[in-house]
């Protein structure tokens, strides 16, 4: 167990160091969510009078989909180069490799989420004192699962890497559009609503909105919680298997 903790720390700090050396990179990675927040959010505000309370949680979930899901890209680069192979020849614990990487992806997301919340404050976003930490915790569990799934995808994509781009691009947008992140699904036709209900992200978005509004006892919080836990469990299980099998 001590070796496992030590190895996890080793992987985590190796992953984190480039970010610490270049913290501005964190902002650049947030380009898309920031654009959506300021441009689309303002547009939405004017057009349908949607509240920031409704929109900001969606943006955070969207960031969770692009960030941790893109974390696999870093692994893919190391797989295509020789860095990952080099680490596989060291006695480093395989599970620790996965956990350390997921921790980094999750911590990055947390930092970005806090930043988005702070930036949304002057726009009129009013965070709930208990809801925010609860929402962030839920988001982080989601990030662990998505990060792990993205690592699995990267391992499966080697050596060409094509699969990674195809899957991440073709999965990301349907998941986003069908989750009600950008526009509410309530006004959608029935078939679209059904599709939305099959999408686990929908439950996370609903739960996040409830939490940020302070409705901690809302049933959607429970469903969202179940959704993120399932995603995290499946992700970690598959991720662990992929890492152990190596390449």
């Amino acid at each position: 167990m001590t070796t496992f903790l030590r190895d996890t720390t080793t992987v985590f700090s190796r992953e984190l160091r480039p970010a610490l050396r270049n913290p501005v990179g964190l902002l650049f990675d947030m380009g898309q969510p920031l654009l959506f927040l300021f441009l689309f959010g303002t547009l939405l505000d004017g057009a349908v009078g949607s509240s920031w309370q409704w929109f900001v949680p969606g943006i955070l979930v969207m960031m969770c989909l692009t960030g941790p899901m893109g974390a696999g890209y870093g692994l893919l680069v190391e797989l295509l180069g020789g860095a990952f192979e080099r680490l596989l020849v060291t006695p480093l614990n395989r599970t620790a490799m996965l956990v350390g990487k997921c921790m980094k992806a999750t911590l990055t997301l947390l930092a970005q989420a806090v930043l988005i919340i702070l930036l949304a404050l002057p726009l009129g976003f009013e965070p709930h004192a208990v809801g925010v930490p609860a929402a962030l915790a839920q988001l982080m569990v989601f990030a662990v699962g998505l990060g792990a799934l993205s690592f699995v995808l990267a391992v499966k994509s080697a050596p060409s890497g094509t699969l990674f781009y195809v899957v991440s691009q073709s999965v990301l947008f349907p998941l986003l559009l069908l989750s009600g992140v950008l526009l509410p699904l309530e006004s959608a036709p029935g078939w679209l609503r059904v599709l939305g209900q099959l999408n686990p992200v929908t439950y996370v978005v609903a739960a996040q909105r409830a939490l940020y509004a302070g409705d901690l006892a809302d049933p959607s919080v429970l469903y969202g919680g179940i959704a993120v836990c399932v995603v995290a469990a499946v992700g970690l299980h598959l991720g662990n298997r992929a890492m152990r099998k190596g390449v």
């Binding site: 030590r6 700090s13 480039p18 020789g82 192979e85 006695p91 480093l92």
Partner: peptide, 26 residues
């Protein structure tokens, strides 16, 4: 092991990567 491809991660400074590698070996 020195593999056929480059062992160092592209985002990591030379010295950082050597320190990480030492940590990997405990």
């Amino acid at each position: 092991y020195v593999g056929q491809r480059n062992s160092a991660g592209e985002e990591h400074r030379v010295r950082d990567e050597l320190v990480s590698q030492g940590r990997c070996y405990g």
